[in-house]
């Protein structure tokens, strides 16, 4: 198994290697943030908007917290929250999709029509509407985005699983008298994972950007949590003085999404066997 993965990796283009390296380094930073950072996440350590010095490598933010420390903690908060949200979206959407295609009939019809309607409303607008009603905090945001994004996962999971459900081995299992859960766990899910894994990367990017956008608008992850989207918002005035510090958290977001996209692109390419 590992040898096969290594063989594929050796054939991978430069972009894929670059992507994997970036993703790994983000994971390391997220896990070891407290060790790597010179100061605390919300600790006020100096003047406001201090320039880059040896004491504060990337200067300080709008209330005097160390920029570098917050940037490193952001890997844990922003990426962690996006990851949890994507997992939740996959759990809801994947489950519903597999159930819809395995059970079929009315269950499928009802779930599919609900998803159609939810997808007709633009995601950001729907998220904003729901956030107004339930109030803006992190838990609400995670639940809302996971729910809205699960509609996309549902579509794919259902489409993939529908092709599996008609196979003879599923028919055999059905005739043997296996229940729905058994069918999903032992027959349908194992045969639908490959496309779902590539989709996970794409959905993660989408969720990550949506959360960053909401936090940037001040409606997502709330202060004083170190989060890349809100860090850009809080320090944006510096840009008008030609200081690039506020662009760093935005660049951190961009770099990770580029990396994930490169890896997904390579995975899709490798699995489709296309040369074009």
């Amino acid at each position: 198994m590992l040898i096969a993965v290594w063989k594929e990796l050796k054939k991978a283009p430069f972009t894929a290697w670059f992507g994997i390296a970036i993703i790994l380094s983000y994971i390391i930073v997220a896990f070891f943030a407290p060790v790597l950072t010179p100061y605390g996440e919300t600790q006020v350590v100096g003047d406001e908007y201090a320039p880059w010095t040896s004491e504060f490598l990337l200067g300080t933010d709008n209330i005097g917290r160390d920029m570098l420390s917050r940037l490193l903690y952001g890997a844990r908060n922003t990426v962690g929250i996006a990851f949890v949200t994507t997992c939740l979206a996959f759990f809801i959407g994947g489950m519903a999709g597999l159930i819809a295609s395995t059970v079929g009939g009315w269950t499928d019809q009802i779930l599919s029509r609900i998803v159609d309607v939810l997808m007709a409303i633009p995601q950001l607008i729907f998220a904003l509407l729901l956030l107004t009603i339930v109030g803006t905090n992190v838990v609400n945001m995670i639940l809302i985005i996971a729910l809205l994004d699960s509609t996309r996962v549902f579509r794919l999971a259902r489409a993939v699983a529908t092709n599996v459900v008609v196979m003879d081995f599923v028919e055999v299992a059905r005739l043997r008298g296996e229940g729905i859960w058994w069918l999903i766990r032992h027959e349908v899910l194992p045969n639908s994972t490959a496309p779902l894994i590539a989709e996970f990367g794409l959905r993660f990017c989408f969720v990550f950007l949506l959360i960053a956008a909401l936090s940037f608008l001040g409606l997502g992850i709330q202060p004083p949590t170190a989060d890349w989207g809100s860090m850009v918002r809080e320090n944006a005035t510096l840009i008008t003085f030609g200081d690039i510090t506020p662009l760093l958290p935005a660049a951190a977001i961009a770099l990770l999404t580029v990396a994930v996209n490169f890896v997904v692109d390579w995975m899709l390419h490798a699995s489709s066997g296309l040369k074009d």
């Binding site: 960053a212 940037f216 935005a250 999404t257 580029v258």
Partner: peptide, 12 residues
């Protein structure tokens, strides 16, 4: 790359 950039990053 441009698909992956957050809008506010491009804007700033």
């Amino acid at each position: 790359t441009s698909i992956s950039f957050p809008e506010f990053f491009v804007a700033y």
